[in-house]
């Protein structure tokens, strides 16, 4: 059983080779998580597993058993978009839109990591009690999500604006 966007799913995983990504896309019908490389090189498949951002392409579906998975389809609120998603539109944080679901999920997980005290390569003091969400921090922490259209400026602006006062 995997809880997907709040709903328990008992869809049988008949082939152990099936990745969480293909499970979500092919078996559950959630196409938000994207396949950009299938080898952990682009971040387009990023989903949240138990609240943490992971690459669905390198996760076997069987490994997600008993976990709670959130895809971009599950991040909105009250049937509408999350403020982060609104900010992506406002700041033109995408062009083709293919990496966007991964960027959105990654940003949510990233903000949570900052709140939990996970350091980054550019954190001024690795032992600090807390970390700021400066543009430099956002850029470093989001570097696992490639955008070949080059919408990075807009993505960083959207994240900065959304999490100015910390994650929600």
């Amino acid at each position: 059983m995997i809880v997907i966007n709040g709903t328990p799913h008992d869809t049988e995983i008949t082939d152990p080779r099936r990745s969480l990504l293909d499970h979500l896309r092919e078996d559950v019908g959630l196409h938000g998580p994207k396949k950009g490389c299938d080898q952990g090189g682009c971040g387009a498949c990023t989903v949240l597993v138990d609240g943490r951002r992971v690459l669905a392409c390198l996760t076997l579906a069987a490994q997600a058993e008993g976990r709670s998975v959130t895809t971009v389809e599950g991040v909105g609120r009250d049937g509408g978009l999350d403020p982060l998603q609104e900010a992506f539109i406002e700041h033109d944080g995408f062009q083709c839109g293919y990496c966007t679901p991964g960027q959105v999920c990654s940003a949510i997980g990233m903000a949570d990591e900052v709140a939990r005290g996970v350091p980054s390569r550019v954190s001024p003091e690795i032992g600090a009690a807390s970390f700021d969400l400066s543009p430099d921090e956002i850029r470093e922490r989001m570097s696992g999500n490639l955008c070949r259209c080059g919408a990075y400026n807009g993505i960083v602006a959207a994240i900065e604006e959304t999490y100015l006062d910390g994650p929600r």
Binding site: L30, H31, E73, Q85, F94, G97, P101, V104
Partner: peptide, 19 residues
């Protein structure tokens, strides 16, 4: 003007060829 396909693209609703 904001992109017309924005809401679909940020929510995973935009359908690409493999989908």
């Amino acid at each position: 003007v904001p992109r017309r396909d924005g809401p679909a693209k940020v929510s995973g609703a935009a359908s690409f060829t493999a989908e």
